[in-house]
Design a protein around this nucleic acid. Structure first.
Lengths: 334, 334
DNA sequence: ATGAAAGCGCTAACAA
DNA sequence: TTGTTAGCGCTTTCAT
């Protein structure tokens, strides 16, 4: 004998009212006489009735769930954003369907399609590059999209970031001011990721140019965002006689730092390093890493907040949001 | 003019077949003549028809989404499990609704209820303690539940873990064998978390007893799982004249390690440390941390795989799964 | 191999 | 303030 799920109809019958009335009290509609509300609530409680969100979604065309595409949850930068996203989502009664993409174009398209099939009310995308195919899906789907910690030169959808160019320029300038002539730039793909190829690189070049230092291609390195990649890359930095480095990802920076340490290089005395994301990793290693500080949790939180407004069709004066950044000089800079 | 969503009915009309037939081809039902299948597919493509998963869910009573309750995505231990869960979920065409609980009893109950309202087909729970209220919800909901990296003495639901007791015993025994008499035990709540209070503690005590060392309450510390908590706790370890420590969480262990280092204590020469989870944090710090090794990704992956079987009502011979562990002696032990 | 039709559990006009 | 009644877009018997 299967346990019979109890529906709005059962409640209506037991309470001697119509389904509509039950629906009203469940949804907090004020147009219900207090006494009938009480009666209905009593029955709901007695029968332990739980509204079926799927049926509700079909009828109302709103699911109160949003899709979140993330490169990799185990990357502290992204998981910090994700945490901010989920907290605000919960606050506004949304749930998130989380999907890892590994920045793989095909996976991203696949997952976006299943997310759309599941009728998510909105989407938050984290990644590095928005392919044309993805962009096309975004626009044909008519649900609001917000990019979190992700820039897209074509500013069609909402986004929340810091000013990567200014931040990078500031960091590199400080390094230059300390006398460094050979400052390396280590990041993920520079051909694929506008955040690196455009914004950070611009800031880097600007800082050099301002100091009259010639840009040297051999000081630019691109690799994947893992600490083991960073460890390997240190020797290349040494070969290129870099005396300081700016790294675009904290986990990668941990690798570079350890690469230096493992080569018995003293940091910061002989080699200075600044990283980019201020994830908690920066304070977990020794020496603690100097870094651009950015409010990771808030970037996620603000993204979700922006998305709720967009989903509600509220007015938003600016959907390209830039949050403040700063620089924290800790143990890896003099 | 609103963009009209196109439905299975539109496809049926355009292809001169019934909705049933369209449904069959969409669902890969073999009972369709190849020529009509082709015709339908052609129309689907031409109209760019996308099945509505919500409607499908309502009609079929299956949503192909599972709920995942996680204490905190920014904790590398849990995010590693989550990654395994998501990959296998994707492989089996499921999506995951991810919800952070902060191990807060009330949040857990709330989120579980909204997950059930959303008709998830199954649930994966990560946490430390299963309250009676939660357990009650589990059983009344009749959807399958699997605990990942989480033990529950009352083995009603599925679970995937390592043998925490044996692992801890092994680690502590090795420490004892090196001559340590005062080995501290640092973990999260020992009153709330069976994984600590029962399993790990049992292993710890056993190792001591085997060596004839008297258990000393003053060597037991409980705190929250953050590196800053770990840094603070180091001085207490020193006060208790501990010469070695077993820590139940990697981030916490990083804190303890740095606490020691910041006090100019040489590790491992003067103080040995072993941690418990083998997250990538263990290899990111210097010295690298010795640890119990456990297959984090696999714990998540196996949990999800088990859940798919349960959701399919397949036979499973054993739903309490113990994966193999080991011990890696790295830089924080001699 | 295909179609007709009854729901799935709820929301949202519209009436009353 | 409350009830009636169409759907929402699909799956799934049951016939044919």
């Amino acid at each position: 004998m299967e346990k019979q799920t109890i529906t709005i109809y059962d409640v209506a019958r037991e309470a001697n009212v119509s389904m509509a009335t039950v629906s009203r009290v469940v949804n907090g509609n004020p147009n219900v006489k207090p006494t009938t509300r009480k009666k209905v609530l009593e029955v709901i409680d007695r029968l332990d009735y739980r509204p079926n969100a799927i049926a509700r979604g079909l009828a109302s065309k709103k699911t109160t769930t949003v899709g979140v595409i993330i490169p990799d949850v185990t990357n502290l930068y992204f998981s910090s954003l994700a945490r901010g996203i989920d907290d605000i989502a919960t606050m506004y009664k949304y749930n998130i369907i989380l999907a890892n993409s590994d920045q793989n174009d095909q996976k991203e398209v696949n997952v976006l399609n299943t997310l759309l099939a599941k009728q998510v009310d909105g989407l938050i995308y984290m990644g590095h590059k928005i392919t044309d195919e993805l962009r096309a899906e975004f626009s044909r789907s008519k649900i609001p999209v917000v990019l979190a910690g992700t820039v897209d030169p074509d500013e069609q959808v909402g986004s929340v970031n810091i000013d990567y160019e200014a931040a990078t320029e500031q960091v590199v300038s400080e390094l230059v001011a300390k006398g460094h002539q050979r400052i390396a730039f280590v990041s993920g793909s520079q051909t694929e990721e506008p955040i690196n190829s455009i914004y950070r690189m611009k800031g880097y070049k600007k800082a050099l140019a301002d100091a009259g230092i010639t840009f040297d291609e051999s000081l630019i390195f691109e690799t994947e965002y893992t600490f083991s990649a960073g460890e390997e890359i240190y020797s290349k930095l040494a070969e290129a006689s870099a005396t300081a480095v700016f790294v675009g990802d904290d986990e990668l920076a941990v690798g570079v730092l350890n690469g230096a340490l493992d080569h018995d290089v003293r940091v910061p005395e002989e080699f200075e390093l600044v990283t980019a994301n201020n994830s908690k990793l920066t304070e977990m290693v020794r020496p603690k890493m100097s870094t651009i500080t950015q409010p990771l949790y808030d970037i996620g939180a603000v993204s979700m907040r922006l998305l709720t407004k967009l989903m509600n069709k509220e007015e938003v004066d600016e959907k390209t949001i830039i949050l403040p950044h700063n620089v924290a000089n800790r143990g890896t800079t003099k």
